[in-house]
Design a protein around this nucleic acid. Structure first.
Length: 903
RNA sequence: GCGGAGGUUGCCGAGCUUGGCCAAAGGCGACAGACUCAAGAUCUGUUUCCAUAGGGAUUCGCCGGUUCAAAUCCGGCCCUCCGCACCA
């Protein structure tokens, strides 16, 4: 009978809700599980579903293992995306409006409501409501009484408290910071704002602008290789390019006109006048290290758009400079600064090797430059000047600092490639002054985090290493922006705390949010949080109502915290999860630090990365309606292990549907059969009991895939085998023996079906709240007997296949008793000496014994077992079966492997 | 470059920690058969090569090593994917 998953799922959703099945009270042994809250700017798709599904499987399993599990959820609304979308809708951007109309249609709402989304908070509230609905429908055992958003006032107070602590502990600092920016639009630009920014990422490259003096003026030459400055031989200016004079820090600089426009956004720079480039070419300039006079030469290859448009030439280490000099027939004395393995790279050799003839061979030049750079950066040793003896990569940062300190260089920022915004304006680099940072570079802080990582429970195993790696390179992180939704920085209201920085310790809020809501809002201040979390805030002057809520909150915090497991996808390791650890360590006492973290893989769809243009982004809701939540959960649970990427293939989904249907109808039919199972069929029960036990071990190790495959698919295959061998009636009788336990063991994965079957088998209460089943296995003997029979079936098949015959009779001869005796003796005696003493016939057997260590030996009483199964076997293989002890037949027989003769 | 994951039989994908029972699970696809008026669904069998008796040969990115024995351990090489932040 077909099962109506919609009816079943709705029924149990209703019951869970009515009885508040997943709203735990603080008693017993607890388990707090969190998954990062979703960002609510659109409909969820299958990719979002997976992480929460894994979380829910763990939550449900732990619940069945006797833990009081809290699985809470909230909503992330801070940052720029929601703001950006609502602005686009306000401005009538057709693409965005269509997108949001389609979301409304998906959820069955009036698409004309899209205009409401011009208000950012409406996007947040609309989608958070829908997400609650989606998640509930997926069967996630989330306690929704603890929901909150990163934008609501109570939460803002909490984040302010957190940032005041960080500041008190001197973990926050200010400084200048470069960002991508559009001058025309007057805004910072993120990946989404840049044309092809998602496929071809734009980053910020730091150049060093070096001072070359010419009279009272400075030619500001920009380079990414300041380590070669000792080898400069000349300056290149592009004779076809407009240059300008600008004033910075009381000095006059010459840069390309384009650079002068961009530099204004990086520092205080004032345009003075345009410059005639020919006035400078072939003049001499003074380089800053040794005051050598070097010529200024024409170089048409110099790009005015990159850096300052002034190039200092180091022909010994730059293929561009070398080729440019060849073209104008200048050949200054090359000065080597770097050697590889005590030998410099010769640019002339490189030029020939890459087949470069002139400056028009741009691709080759780029390629050769990359080669030279990699060689000299990683392996090159400096042989001149102050930093002589060092490998470039070890000393580069210090060289830059040194030049800046000496007042002969400044940092100049440039984009890593030419880029423009979606509106068509150039992307440049601007420096934000007095940016706020959280200073994750403090070593003492890092050490505490390392200590925590060392003792945490982490899955998969390599996660520990990845964390340590991240801690090593993590630096200051800008923690506030000028725009976006979120919490204002308490020490400077002009800034809004950036969206990853406002969500580092929010998991603690789940434990107390219902109580915060009971307090008088105005009374919530730092003292309240200090009291709840540290037991030391002064609260005697609060109202009774608030005081009561504070005490209750403290109790719940102490009960639920720390987080026992935080599960999310691996891209979070190097950012969110690391910040999560840092902030906990900074703010909370050791016993409240995170206990465990696990990371999971991503979802691809139909073999490819999900993207709208490929049309392989499926909304969660659509999938649930079409196939049901159990199927979705089963698919992700069984298709790949938690930490690997998983591929959603619609073509395979059908199979799952059939299997679930079979599972259901099998158990439904088994429920009503009468009589005890035949003794011969109990092997199935034996295997199932072991499977259930193994499943528990797998779930413990978060091997969700293995647990599911084994408990579900392998079990179904066994049942099919039994059905083929013994017929339906007998199979159902065996299945009934473990039906209820089987359903329970799968409850973490397919909770709805499990509830249905559990109630069908007259189980008490919710399946979701039962203990994980255990059964004692008293059927091992039957299982061994079956293995023996199965091996005969296999042999039968391979013989018929090779011999190409359709036998009508199978004569099975079991091994003579002396073979059994020798086999048993060989276990305790030295086989070699046995061989010496044996008769020729015995010797032959003993030698085989040594060669084949894997003699099945599953049953001792082979004839008896064969007789018992004879009729079944005969029917199954469609042959007459004769069991014989006749020496003619048993001569070739071995224990565990009887001789078979087909006629 | 750094760090991580991985390259398995037509495809997807287990196995590799604890070497032998691994020609290598499972699924998909393909082929044959049963059922059916037919199709579909379902079930059965086959699916590296050779072989009319349960056998043999060659295979798990490439090269080499350890071992009685290697997909599995060790060394080197080639290739693919992901992260390297200020973006949620």
């Amino acid at each position: 009978m077909a099962y109506d998953f919609n009816a079943i799922e709705e029924k149990w959703l209703r019951k869970w809700k009515e009885e508040r099945a997943f709203e735990p009270k603080p008693t017993g042994k607890k388990f707090l599980l969190t998954v990062p809250w979703p960002y609510c700017n659109g409909a969820l798709h299958i990719g979002h579903g997976r992480t929460y599904t894994v979380g829910d499987i763990i939550a449900r399993y732990k619940r069945m293992r006797g833990f009081n599990v809290l699985y809470p959820m909230g909503f992330h609304i801070s940052g720029t995306p929601i703001l950006a979308f609502s602005k686009k809708i306000e401005n009538g951007d057709a693409q965005t409006i269509n997108l949001y109309r389609s979301y409304l249609e998906l959820y069955g709402d009036d698409p004309t409501r899209v205009s409401e989304f011009a208000v950012p908070s409406n996007i947040a509230s609309y989608f958070s409501e829908r997400i609650i609905n989606d998640f509930t429908n997926m069967g996630f055992s989330i306690d929704w009484t603890r929901k909150f958003t990163s934008g609501e006032p109570i939460y803002n107070k909490f984040v302010e408290w957190q940032f005041r602590i960080l500041q008190d502990k001197k973990l926050i600092k200010r400084g200048d910071y470069p960002i991508l920016y559009s001058a025309e639009e007057g805004n910072p630009v993120g990946e989404d704002d840049i044309l092809e920014g998602d496929t071809d990422k734009v980053s910020i490259t730091q150049f060093t602008g070096v001072y070359f003096y010419i009279g009272n003026e400075i030619l500001l030459a920009s380079t990414v290789r300041p380590e070669t400055l000792d080898g400069v031989t000349n300056i290149f200016l592009n004779p076809d390019v407009q240059y300008s004079r600008i004033r910075m820090r009381g000095q006059t600089f010459i840069v390309s006109k384009r650079a002068s426009e961009k530099l204004r956004f990086q520092r205080d720079a004032e345009f003075v006048s345009d410059v005639k480039v020919e006035d400078y070419i072939h003049k001499m300039a003074r380089e800053p290290l040794y005051s050598r006079e070097i010529p200024i030469l024409p170089g048409k290859f110099v790009d005015p758009n990159i850096g300052t448009g002034v190039d200092y030439s180091v022909p010994a280490h730059s293929i561009w400079d070398h080729v440019a000099l060849l073209e104008i027939s200048e050949r200054p004395d090359y000065i080597q600064v770097i050697e590889n393995d005590s030998q410099p790279l010769d640019m002339e050799v490189i030029r020939k090797r890459f087949g470069i003839t002139n400056l028009d061979d741009k691709e080759k030049l780029v390629e050769a430059t990359k080669y030279v750079y990699e060689q000299e950066y990683y392996h090159g040793k400096i042989v001149r000047g102050k930093f002589k003896g060092n490998i470039v990569k070890d000393i580069k940062e210090r060289i830059i600092d040194d030049l800046v300190q000496m007042g002969i260089a400044i940092p100049v920022y440039e984009t890593s490639r030419r880029a423009e915004t979606r509106e068509g304006n150039p992307v440049i680099v601007a420096v934000i002054k007095n940016q706020w940072f959280i200073d994750y570079s403090i070593e003492a802080w890092k050490d505490k985090v390392r200590e925590l990582i060392g003792r945490m429970s982490l899955k998969p195993d390599n996660l520990r290493n990845q964390f340590l790696q991240t801690v090593d390179w993590i630096k200051e992180r800008p923690c506030a922006r000028r725009r976006g939704l979120g919490t204002r920085l308490p020490m400077d209201n002009e800034w809004i705390i950036e969206s990853l920085s406002d969500s580092t310790i929010y998991t603690v809020v789940y434990t107390i949010i219902p109580f915060l809501r009971e307090m008088n809002f105005d009374e919530i201040d730092d003292e309240v949080f200090n009291h709840i979390f540290f037991g030391k805030g002064e609260i005697s002057r609060k109202s009774e109502r608030t005081k009561k809520a504070i005490e209750a909150a403290r109790k719940e915090f102490l009960f639920w915290y720390p987080v026992d497991l935080r599960h999310t996808s691996y891209p979070h390791i190097s950012n969110h999860l690391t910040f999560y650890l840092f902030n906990h360590v900074a703010i909370f006492p050791q016993n409240e630090w995170p206990v465990g973290v696990s990371t999971g893989g991503m979802v691809i769809s139909e073999g490819q990365k999900m993207s709208k243009s490929k049309g392989n982004v499926y909304p969660l809701l659509t999938i649930k309606r079409k196939y049901g939540a159990d199927l979705f959960r089963m698919y992700f649970a069984s298709n790949a292990d938690v930490w690997y990427d998983v591929d959603w293939r619609t073509s395979e989904v059908e199979n799952y549907s059939k299997k679930l249907e079979r599972f259901y109808s099998l158990l439904e039919e088994a429920k009503d059969v009468n009589g005890e199972p035949d003794g011969r069929d109990l092997w199935l029960v034996s295997r199932m009991i072991d499977r259930i036990a193994k499943g528990s071990k797998n779930f413990d190790a978060m091997k969700v895939r293995e647990a599911t495959v084994d408990l579900f698919f392998n079990a179904l295959n066994d049942i099919r085998d039994l059905e083929n061998f013994s017929g339906k009636e007998r199979t159902l009788r065996a299945v009934r023996k473990f039906g209820k336990e089987w359903a329970l063991s799968l409850s973490p994965v397919i909770p709805f079906l499990s509830e249905e079957i559990h109630s069908m088998y007259e189980g008490n209460g919710f399946a979701s709240l039962q203990a994980y089943p255990t059964m004692e296995n008293v059927y091992r003997q039957q299982e061994s007997e079956w293995n023996f029979i199965e091996s005969i079936v296999e042999d039968f098949r391979s013989i018929t296949k090779v011999s190409n015959m359709k036998p009508s009779r199978m004569i099975i001869g079991t091994a003579e008793s002396w073979k059994w005796k020798l086999l048993n003796d060989s276990k305790s005696k030295d086989v070699k000496s046995m061989i010496k003493e044996a008769s020729p016939e015995q010797r032959e057997f003993l030698v085989t014994l040594v060669k084949k260590k894997d003699l099945t030996q599953s049953v001792e009483n082979e004839e008896e077992v064969l007789t018992k199964f004879r009729d079944d076997l005969a029917r199954y293989l469609n042959v007459e079966i004769v069991v014989s002890k006749d020496a003619v037949y048993s001569r070739k027989a071995l224990p565990g492997r009887p001789a078979i003769r087909l006629e």
